[in-house]
Write a protein that binds this DNA or RNA. Structure first.
Lengths: 157, 157
DNA sequence: TAGAATGGTCAATCAGGTTGTCCAATTGCC
DNA sequence: GGCAATTGGACAACCTGATTGACCATTCTA
């Protein structure tokens, strides 16, 4: 039962399209709200920076890229005004990368957009079906689901 | 009800992780079966080439990249033995890009892997829950869900 | 305190994408 | 039929984001 051959293709593609649909809507909203240059991958970077800031080397580890690549990303986000760098008074080697007000604003706006989309889906599917969908996805995905090294994974070396 | 704030983040990430989990498993299987150099994006390229072959220009359109970029991709896949180029007897300008036996083999193996994963999920969730999940995803994603221009979308220009 | 490890930066390189240009072949229209 | 416009392919130059390697300053540790 359950498998006419070829059916397996659809499920992952629907997952990807659902993801993409949400992300595109969030970024359309962000663009309208004064953040037209943010890209999907920036959300991952902001999450990896976290509320207390971090260093380029640690950021690279979290994102699964070299510290040099992380440094370049930070530099470009700094130019766009989303992060700032400060020296660590306790360790003159480290430069702490922190989100600026603008960075925090973009995070708050995307959080709101995510919640809005989820509410619309709840209204569309019914709250019970959405809850079931989330429960099933939790069951099917690994516990450490919040992998931040996803950008770059797709093109993949 | 239905929305404690911040909950909206989880759903798209679970979708992405579910996609990634499937794709990683498929490509682990492909690597074992003699296709260690195939990347997630290659599956999209192969689908865009299709069973009857196509040209670099058309491929570029389907993938949402320039014909030059498509040409480079074809060149690299040709070097790896997955596609071959033949001249079109009816139009000396066109060079038809076709999957080789090796290319078709990789497609067949990934189709089998997709089906196997889906069957495992059906056994895990129950066939009814899986069917509901698929139905809900269909409802939430656009009709032209099979967008092939997804590679490259994430990094964004 | 000397040696190892860490964080940041500079430089060279690579891969994959872009645009612009050009040529050969085909199509369309008068 | 013939000529202009279009199309498909290829070449070149360039951009971006990633890589590795090297190097220096600082900090940790044995």
């Amino acid at each position: 039962m359950s498998s006419e051959p070829g059916a397996g293709y659809e499920l992952p593609l629907r997952m990807l399209m659902a993801f993409r649909t949400i992300i595109d809507e969030v970024h359309a909203e962000l663009a309208r709200a004064g953040h037209p240059d943010l890209r999907p991958m920036h959300g991952f970077v902001f999450q990896a920076i976290g509320p207390h800031g971090t260093t380029a080397a640690e950021l690279g580890q979290r994102l699964g890229v070299s510290k040099q690549a992380a440094g370049k990303t930070v530099e470009s986000l700094e130019r766009m005004g989303y992060v700032e760098r400060a020296t660590d008074p306790r360790d003159a080697r480290r430069k702490i990368v922190r989100l600026t007000g603008r960075g925090l604003d973009s995070l708050a706006r995307s959080a709101a957009a995510f919640d809005r989309i989820r509410a619309r889906w709840a209204a569309d599917l019914g709250a019970d079906r959405l809850a079931a969908l989330e429960a099933d996805l939790r069951r099917l995905t690994p516990a450490d689901f919040f992998r931040l090294d996803t950008p770059g994974w797709f093109g993949g070396a």
